[in-house]
Amino acid sequence: MTPRIFSPLVLFLVVAFLIGPFFIIVAASLSAGETLAFPPQGFSLKWVAKVFTVESFRESFAVSMFLAIGGTAMALVLGIPASYALSRYKLPFGETIRTIVSLPIIVPGIIVGLALLRYIVVPFGFNITLALLLAHTALVLPYAVRVVSASLNNLRSDIEEAAVLLGSSRAGAFFRVVMPNIRSGILAAFILGFVTSFNQVPVSLFLSGPGVRTLPIDMLSYMEITYDPSVAALSALLAFMSIGIVFLAERFLGFSRYV
């Protein structure tokens, strides 16, 4: 029977292609050689150490952190009320609004980046950092709305009525009984948004200007000039950071329920 041999093979290939690159990067970063290469030449931690000494990495890491945290927070500030309205009320054009909100997932980042640059940043002389922040907010918004909506849909709406009948105002009911019960959904949305924003390349590529660069863009330009394994080391560190975050999220929140 073919499937018997076939399916483990497929499984192996899928895993190899998904996880393989990660191992290659980790191995390459531990190389003692002077250039980015696989298989690595010798073993050394010097490239890992070098990552922390590169000034531009430190700066762009700060920019990326700011965008990931700020953009995700803004997306949640907009996304939580939006999800609430979409899931609790029959809004006119509700479906249309849902589609518009999820557009940034569907529209290629290159287009979003180009459009923002050409029609907003350039003509209005928009501040680059602010433009990046808005772009990241928009990119994270679809995830925020989806994850928060999923968690709102699991929550019965009559608990709000129960809270009101016990003397709470409508707004009070939202903060007292809705928010605490979608807390893990909000955290899950935050983590997903953070990772999405942090790894974002195409939009940031168009908007990054002198002095303001996100980490992935900075890594790209670093590699164009200096072809040493420190980029691999940085990639590996970032990958471990993401894995760590998702692991903790899964451990404490049951992250996979929301995504």
């Binding site: 608990i159 009525e161 129960a162 809270a163 009948l165 009984v177 807390r183």
Partner: peptide, 27 residues
């Protein structure tokens, strides 16, 4: 509704899932 002194026991009970039984009653 929050100023009527009318209580309602919902068909689904509508207890607050994040609060203990004590805190539900104390709400």
């Amino acid at each position: 509704a929050n100023k009527r002194s009318v209580g309602l026991v919902f068909q689904s009970y509508a207890l607050f899932p994040h609060l203990s039984v004590f805190e539900n009653v104390a709400f």
